[in-house]
Structure formats: structure tokens, C-alpha cells
Design a protein around this nucleic acid. Structure first.
Length: 490
RNA sequence: GGUCUCGUGGCCGAGUGGCUAGGCGGAGGUCUGCAAAACCUUAGACAGCGGUUCGAAUCCGCUCGAGACCUCCA
């Protein structure tokens, strides 16, 4: 299991060689969605980033347990909604059961992820199903003297923790700065210090999502679920914890602190954070009101979208940027991604038409090495894709006979494209639209056969007539040397 | 205000001391009844000003600009 995979560890702010704690096993935990709203483009970023990691580690031969949670409790609102659970709020507005909302948006998330060809994690735990374990962790922290109760809520004593530990080491903060920069929020008077965070929160009377506990009827603190569920499913020490950069502080910082106290040791070896997707240079986010949902991308029904975009176009668009860079949404960029992916696919299909000769005038192993080097360098998918485009040039040269390739090299070339394009990058073309209705396909073929006959008879009026009518209906007709290809465009 | 990140050609986006990134778009061409598609070739860049260096887009300083976190967030 030798590899040279290097990943950027937020904790050290450096790229580090990836060495699993218990090879060949790898424990991976990623912060999943809060299921109280439509899945939007921002959710696709971590899902796709860590899908790439999951796929690549699998390809390298690791046995991965990938845990990605569903957040369906907790997460306080601020301002007027302080103390109210987000999900409960939405539920009351729409007069639905909270779990109905959870189910609805979880289903949507799953559906969208499947379309993006994001593999399911090994375990997808719900926070609401781990209330008991969360209470146990609160109790454990309490017993160790790092928590205090106040008015039915339990808070983590950051100041005490910081005496023997470094609170802020992940996000590069220190407690003095935090004192002067924490905003005034409701409920702060319950805390010893404004930077203390809730482990258990007493629920207001109108709060629907609540569980009994020795402290109060309430719900677990904002950050507890990830500590609890990662420990439960991956153990007290595991390899990689991922999530969006916006979760770095306070979420992951708090997670480190409470886990350290509860378990007595550091749990995460490598912290990985994906950057944000921006729109007009600003972060796309639900709370900012500028998020475009994935369903809107797929249907094109949004005022900022010029057309619908296929799920794999979105995937390609995201993977064409490095995960630690921001990526800026625009129609132009998305359409460029669409064309680029098409070029890659065309070449991929052409592979089957290449005939092997006795010798090779192209270096395939060089290409292969470059591909691995790119991924090994902190999952540099844009560079990998660039190399694959270099390979497209090679494929086309082979196709036109400008270059030659022997049998072994040809097999290697095919295997490279299968490995990287399909297995690792996950650009597997959906065959649904091609196979769902065979009769209708035959009808279109029939029409185009008639057109070919017309062309043969130089009846171009008839030929063009058929083509134009089909174009009007939304078909894309591509004439080939001996025949045609067609597809129903979006 | 505090902490941090970034500024690359028309657009997106890699690189990070000397060696072509790549994609889209543009221009030119091949193919074709025409068109589309496909393919080939090609021009074009490192925010500004100083400094270090034989050499800087890459290191340092300053200026300008943009953004993130500090509050739920992917």
C-alpha cells in the first residue's frame, strides 16, 4: 500500500504525506448537510471533493469507512430566533412535522448527490438518532470538570480548556482575540465567557425538537454530533476529517476541544477543508439568499441561469478547480465546462476505434505518471484534467494515424482513461436517456436513414427538411463520414 | 475592529524563483452538398510601485482592489 499521496492538513497548514493510522483501513468523516433547505450548489462542493478523495483512496487499495452525517437537530438561530431549533422553526411555518422536513430534504439531497455521481458514504448517521450518546459525552465532559450548567443549559469551559490545551489552533485564533471580537448575542449572560459554547441547550417552551435530560428538556449543542458520531463509528482516533472552510471556526475548533476532553486524546490526524463556491465574487450560501439549488441548475429554472446544466457538467465545473480555491459561478464558466467535458467524452469514446500497431511513438507511462502525480499532490484535479486533455491530443493523433501505438500501450491508455475519467473523477455518462425508450430511438434512426437516402439521391431539400424539423424538436444531428449520430439536447 | 486568504490573457482556472498548464471563447485551417459536429494550428497574462536575485507571475515591503471567518452555514 505504498503511495505518495500528500494532503494539506489545515492543522499544520502544510502538505503532509498521508499515512493511515491502521493501514489498509482509513477512517474518513465529513460534515454533511443540515437538512432544512434545498440542496444547493454549495453542498455539491464538499460532497464532490470528498467523493474524489473516497474514490482515489479506494483506487489506491485502501479500505475506507466513510462517515457523512445528516444534521437534523440543534443549530441555533440567532437574533429573534435564539433558542429555537432551525428545523422546528421551519416546521412551524409550514405546519409540518419536523421529521417530515428532515425526510423531504434528505431525500432531495440523496437524489441530487446521485445525479452528481457522488458515491454513498459507508455510514450516514443522523444526529437525532444519537441523542443518548451525545448526552453521554456531555456527562463525560461534565465529570472531567470542563463543563458547567447554567439555567438548564450546559456550556463548555473554554478558558479552563485553554490552560492546558490550545483552543484556536485549528483556525489560528487565540482566546484574547476572541474576547474582543465575539458579538453580543442573546443568552450570552448564561455563559462565563462569550466564547464558551453549548453542549446541551435548554429548549424554549415552543420548541418542538426536544429530548429529556438531567439538565433540562432540550437538545444537544451545535458541535456535539460530529464528535459523538465520529468517535462512535471511526474510533477515538481516525485519519481524516473534512468539511467546508466555513466550518473551521467555530464548529471544528469546538469539536477538537470537546473531543479532547471527552476522549482524553486528539482524534483527527488530518483536517481537510474545501473552499467556497462564489457567485459574483461572493460566497454562495443559504443564509445569504444567493444560493441556486441543484434542481434549479438541472432544470435551468432560475433567473441567473441561461440554460439547464447537466449534473456531470456541475461535477466537472467543480473538479476543474482545486478544492482549496474558491470557484466562481457564471454561465460562461459552466458552458465552458460543458464543452470541455464533451471533448473528454468524445476522446474517451474514440479509444475503442484506435488500432494497435507494432510500436509506439507516444509515451503512455509518462502520461500515467503525470496523472498520479497530480492527484498525489493534494488531489490536484484541475492538473489531472489538464493531463487528460493532453491525452486527448494523443488519442486524436492515434486516430488520425499521425502517431502509432502498440498493443500493451493501447491497453494501458484505455485503462488510464477508465481509471481516471470514470473511476476516480466519476464522469460516467448516464445511459438513462439513451436506453429508456428503444422504440422512439428506432423512429429517430428511421428518419435519419431516410435522410441519408435523400442525401444519396442528392435530394438535399428533403435531407435538410428532415434535419431542420428534428433540430426544431431539440435533436442534435451530427453527420459522420459514413452515417450520423444524434442525441436529444437539453 | 481582530484573524486569514486571494488578485494570472475576453471568461474559468493550474503553477509558485529559470523550463508550453489546461478548458471555453477569438482567429486561421481540415473535413462536408450546405450547416452542425469533430479535428488541427494559433494569438493573448501574471493588480500597481519599489526591493532581493545572474534571473520573479513566483520571495520581501508598500499601495490599491476583492473575499472568508469572528453568528447558523458546505
Amino acid at each position: 500500500m505504498e503511495n505518495k499521496l500528500v494532503i494539506y492538513n489545515t492543522l499544520s497548514r502544510k502538505k503532509e504525506l498521508f499515512i493511515p493510522i491502521n493501514p489498509p483501513n482509513v477512517g474518513l468523516y465529513v460534515c454533511g448537510p443540515t437538512v432544512y433547505g434545498e440542496t444547493h450548489l454549495g453542498h455539491a462542493r464538499p460532497a464532490i471533493t470528498f467523493d474524489l478523495l473516497f474514490r482515489y483512496l479506494s483506487h489506491l487499495g485502501y479500505k475506507i469507512r466513510y462517515v457523512r452525517n445528516i444534521t437534523d437537530v440543534g443549530h441555533l438561530e440567532n437574533d429573534a430566533d435564539a433558542g429555537e431549533d432551525k428545523i422546528a422553526k421551519k416546521a412551524r411555518l409550514e405546519e409540518l412535522e419536523p421529521m417530515e422536513i428532515v425526510q423531504y430534504y434528505t431525500n432531495m439531497y440523496h437524489d441530487n448527490m446521485k445525479k452528481l455521481n457522488v458515491l454513498s458514504p459507508s455510514i450516514e448517521p443522523h444526529a437525532s438518532a444519537h441523542i443518548m450518546e451525545q448526552q453521554q459525552m456531555v456527562e463525560s465532559i461534565f465529570r472531567k470538570g470542563y463543563a458547567y450548567e447554567s439555567n438548564g443549559s450546559v456550556y463548555f469551559d473554554v478558558e479552563k480548556y485553554n490552560k492546558t490545551n490550545n483552543y484556536g489552533k485549528l483556525s489560528g485564533r487565540n482566546i484574547e482575540d476572541l474576547l474582543s471580537t465575539t458579538r453580543e448575542l442573546e443568552g450570552q449572560e448564561e455563559k462565563k465567557n462569550p466564547f464558551d459554547f453549548a453542549l446541551w441547550k435548554k429548549a424554549n417552551p415552543e420548541h418542538i425538537m426536544r429530548w429529556p435530560s438531567k439538565w433540562s428538556d432540550g437538545f444537544p449543542g451545535w458541535h456535539l454530533e460530529c464528535s459523538v458520531m465520529s468517535t462512535k463509528y471511526l474510533g477515538e482516533e481516525f485519519d481524516i476529517h473534512g468539511g467546508g472552510m466555513d466550518l473551521l471556526f467555530p464548529h471544528h475548533e469546538c469539536e477538537i476541544a470537546q473531543t479532547k476532553i471527552a476522549n482524553g486524546k486528539e482524534s483527527v490526524k488530518y483536517w481537510m477543508h474545501n473552499n467556497m463556491i462564489t457567485i459574483n465574487g461572493k460566497k454562495m450560501g443559504k443564509s445569504l439568499g444567493n444560493a441556486i439549488s441543484l434542481n434549479q441548475f438541472f432544470t435551468g429554472e432560475h433567473k441567473l441561469l441561461e440554460k439547464p446544466y447537466a449534473p456531470l457538467t456541475i461535477r466537472f465545473f467543480i473538479l476543474q478547480a482545486h478544492y482549496r480555491s474558491t470557484v466562481d459561478f457564471s454561465n460562461e464558466a459552466l458552458q465552458a465546462a460543458e464543452k470541455g467535458l464533451q471533448r473528454l467524452w468524445t476522446a474517451f469514446d474514440s479509444l475503442s476505434k484506435i488500432k494497435a500497431g507494432n510500436q509506439s511513438s507516444v509515451s503512455i507511462s509518462k502520461l500515467e505518471n503525470k496523472c498520479y502525480e497530480a492527484l498525489n499532490d493534494d488531489l490536484n484535479s484541475p492538473v489531472l484534467i489538464a493531463h487528460l486533455f493532453d491525452g486527448v491530443k494523443i488519442i486524436n493523433s492515434l486516430l488520425s494515424g499521425k502517431e502509432q501505438i502498440n498493443k500493451d500501450d493501447l491497453n494501458k491508455l484505455k485503462s488510464i482513461y477508465k481509471t481516471f475519467v470514470i473511476d476516480v473523477l466519476g464522469f460516467e455518462k448516464s445511459e438513462i436517456s439513451q436506453t429508456d425508450n428503444k422504440v422512439y430511438h428506432k423512429v429517430v434512426d428511421l428518419l435519419l436513414d431516410l435522410r441519408m437516402e435523400a442525401k444519396a439521391k442528392k435530394d438535399f431539400q428533403m435531407a435538410d427538411n428532415i434535419r431542420n424539423k428534428l433540430l426544431e424538436l431539440g435533436f442534435e444531428i451530427k453527420d459522420k463520414k459514413d452515417g450520423y449520430e444524434w442525441e436529444l439536447s437539453d
